[in-house]
Design a binder for these strands. Structure first.
Lengths: 297, 297
DNA sequence: CCTATCAATGCAAAAGTAGCATTAATCAAT
DNA sequence: ATTGATTAATGCTACTTTTGCATTGATAGG
């Protein structure tokens, strides 16, 4: 039994005329007759009743027609669906990201990707920057969004987005009224930061910002997440320099101030060169389309 | 694309080893390789990743595997189901029957048939004896259960069951206490009968019963159905002779009495010789098995 | 560096499938 | 009743596909 046999059978069942069915199948009538006979012999029962001048379905043939038509449709759908999966237009994509990405580019990336590829199911995984590399290499996630971290040779990186730092102060701070401030003005404040190992690149940016302003920050408290830092600042426990996108976190008691000068902090996409999830390429492409890279580092 | 391609693909997707898959498919390894390549070329994407020493499914291949496996299972089921339909073990059977059959052999026939052929959906159609022939010839029903009526040449008949008549009297009738009665005793009662055209054979039986007893029944009321006759008798409107199986109609006010002599009334199966419903033969066979015919007219 | 394992390829035989021409059967119109 | 037209089946040959055997190519492990 062949798919062709079945397709021929379906057409014949619909036309009930060997000649016309053969025409619709772009073949001559004799082979169609033979195909049907062969199918009947394989199945072990008659599909059609050959009356003198007319052809009609037997009851079993009619039942088989309904099933066969449905199954052929499902097969066609399965083929198209698998082809879409191969093109990455359909499937699953697991995205690992840092909290900072969640406050900056992640929502926009997901919105744009979801518009272009509505049939890709995206699973989100909050990840600390230092865990991202392992998650990518072990295959737990397909793509990561984070500050640049040390990449092994099988990990790829594509920068997407740069933003300055901004200062976050507790309400009532002497600088609350200023439009924008200089980092120097915070030289005597107590700082809330995070361990260098959590996000080296961002840590470097904060430190270089202070160094350029001629002071070493007076570190009072350390935590992991930027959003925790903002929370602590809001409770009056110190000041900090955080990525500008953290402004979106509108928290009573926390005031964000632009810096007159700040290094740029970069975020981008990481992925494993060994990952063959076909949804990965479309995601990278969509991300680049949304955040075009003018030739820079 | 061929069903064989798909079956080969499914086995390979399960073994992930060309050699073992080929063995399970009772073929050698090279044609299997070629089949898979051909399938991949037809589909337009890779189903498997060929690593140095291992074979693994691509994401699209994994999706296609699930669909394909399900579809092949459905196809196998459709084939078996259609084969069962061709054998008459599955399908639909429309049974036309008279009210008298409903009171006598129909329930037993349906019970026996339902046990042997649980997957045949039986549709019941109450029919007046005179309408049965038309329903059979037009294909509205597949088989009829009735008294023998005039059969055309394309209508087949198989007798199944014979039963005597019995008398039905209103409660309080002078014969109420008798164990069994002679028809002569009803010579002066007013009779409730039915038109000869409704069921000629049964009508003949009633008339011949009275004739043999030496009287012509004094017909007071006529209706179509035996059950209506019994109802009218129960309301004291007369007496009647009805098939013995009508005793099952236990109606207050109606008393059934055996006759010391009665002609036998026959019921049997009718069907059209042109009807090719495969469920018909199993039904006839089951009926004959339940009501075996000792060689008689 | 060699060997074992596994998938791919070359090639010839076999099987299956197609089309053309023709036959067989039956209905419709003389 | 006879003829003609229509429709499905059959005979036959050419072509395509599929198979198995033998072999090659590639790679991981000893």
């Amino acid at each position: 039994m062949n798919i062709r046999h079945l397709r021929h059978f379906v057409v014949l069942a619909e036309t009930l005329h060997f000649g016309q069915a053969a025409k619709r199948l772009h073949m001559s009538q004799p082979p169609l007759s033979r195909q049907i006979v062969a199918l009947e012999e394989y199945l072990g029962f008659e599909l059609f009743q050959r009356h003198s001048r007319a052809v009609s379905l037997t009851p079993a043939g009619a039942g088989f027609y309904q099933q066969t038509k449905r199954i052929l449709d499902e097969l066609d759908f399965a083929v198209r669906s698998a082809q879409a999966m191969a093109r990455g237009e359909r499937g699953e994509l697991r995205v690992g990201f840092t909290m900072c990405a969640a406050w900056s580019i992640l929502p926009e990336l997901l919105a744009v990707f979801g518009e272009d590829f509505p049939d890709v199911a995206v699973t989100l995984h909050e990840t600390l920057p230092r865990d991202l590399q392992g998650a990518l290499l072990s295959g737990d996630v397909d793509v990561g969004i984070s500050f640049p971290v040390d990449v092994g040779n099988s990990l790829m990186y594509q920068p997407l987005f740069c933003e300055p730092l901004c200062a976050v102060l507790p309400a009532g701070h002497t600088l609350e009224a200023s439009e924008s401030i200089r980092a120097e003005a915070l030289a005597n404040d107590s700082f809330i930061t995070f361990p260098a190992s959590t996000a080296p690149e961002l840590h470097d940016a904060v430190m270089s910002c202070c160094q350029r302003a001629g002071f070493t920050p007076n570190i009072h408290l350390q935590t992991q997440l930027q959003q925790t830092i903002v929370n602590l600042v809001a409770r009056g426990l110190g000041v900090s320099l955080v990525p500008d996108s953290m402004r979106r976190m509108q928290l009573q008691g926390a005031v964000f101030k632009s810096l007159e000068w700040s290094p740029l902090v970069e975020q981008g996409l990481f992925w494993s060169a060994n990952n063959h999830n076909p949804c990965l390429a479309p995601f990278l492409q969509t991300a680049l389309k949304r955040y075009p890279q003018t030739a820079s580092a």
